[in-house]
Design a protein around this nucleic acid. Sequence first.
DNA 1: AGGTCAGACGCGAATCCTTCGCATTAGGCT
DNA 2: AGCCTAATGCGAAGGATTCGCGTCTGACCT
Lengths: 192, 192
Amino acid sequence: MNARATTRPGGRSARVQQSVHQAVRDLEAEVGREALTVPLIAARAGVTPSTVYRRWGDLRELLSDVAVERLRPDAPPADHGGLRADLAAWTVQFAEEMDSTAGRTYIRDALLGDPEQGNAARCSDYAAEQLRAVCVRAAGRGEAVPELEALLDVLVAPLMYRILFRPSDLSQAYTDRLVAAALGRAGSSSGS
Amino acid sequence: MNARATTRPGGRSARVQQSVHQAVRDLEAEVGREALTVPLIAARAGVTPSTVYRRWGDLRELLSDVAVERLRPDAPPADHGGLRADLAAWTVQFAEEMDSTAGRTYIRDALLGDPEQGNAARCSDYAAEQLRAVCVRAAGRGEAVPELEALLDVLVAPLMYRILFRPSDLSQAYTDRLVAAALGRAGSSSGS
DNA sequence: AGGTCAGACGCGAATCCTTCGCATTAGGCT
DNA sequence: AGCCTAATGCGAAGGATTCGCGTCTGACCT
């Protein structure tokens, strides 16, 4: 699943990975994110620091892995009976989650320790999957659906850009404008 | 100029900052970015490591400061005689610069060591200034110009999102589509 | 089923980075 | 010209990180 963290899917390697990830989550809640160190995490996980360094190479890469897991959506997007309503609701929820203090931290962590861009791509895939589910459902209703690429460009990209580069309030008025823009050019071809 | 790096504008503080920044640029070219360490930079700059730690607090924050300076545009956007041509040319150039290996590194560095979001905001401001210049020029010609916020959402955000999250080729065909989308909804109000 | 082997882990030492207190010095200000 | 704040240099102490070596797990083959 992870390029660096899983060469042998079962057995001890998997247990170590799970244990270390859990230690990160626990300690993050207990001592705060700033106080996290590799030796501390390793001690809590019951492994030696060298193991963590060898598997993840770096505290940042470890935090990146954990952050990506936390950004994984836990449920398919809610069904509100129509494409516009589904998109509007999903976008509001997405903006809220990502613009929270925790969300911003996870996004930054995921981007931060990620030499191969693999974790960042996974974040984008999560959003794309959610949007695709909304579109598939809408197509099942017979609605015309926009291109997935266009939705990423028009909905997700502006939100992420603002979160990362220019802290601004992502009010529902704003997300509604984004949805309107997305549906406005629903028919235009916009492949990658 | 920098929140942390300049309390006393002139004199030794300024010399130290300049010297350290220069050392970062030199060493980055000589030994590579991965091999950069605070003691190494400090030695090259002729200061003690403690000075660097006190001023910047962290290697990442120092790299962030240097990266932001490198992302500053060195010239106003070129004049191609019309809004569409100006935007198209600027967007192509922006995509090329930011999507280069160096560009991606600088963007990540700028985002990376930036607790206050100040450096990231400055990156966004650079793009906004450039776009504003294009718009002001177009308005001088009597052309209808889109909102600056809309341009950031439609042009800059998708490019940055793709660069950071999903490596994809930012061909001119793609940037042209972005420009077309930006001008398509030129009249719609899109403040905030 | 038993054996083999590559890869992962634990351990410990050496190295390097990072932090901190204290003395010194530069430069702004009156 | 003299004071006073703040930045810097220096050196020691405390962690973090790397690395080599021996051990063990578990996947794969016969």
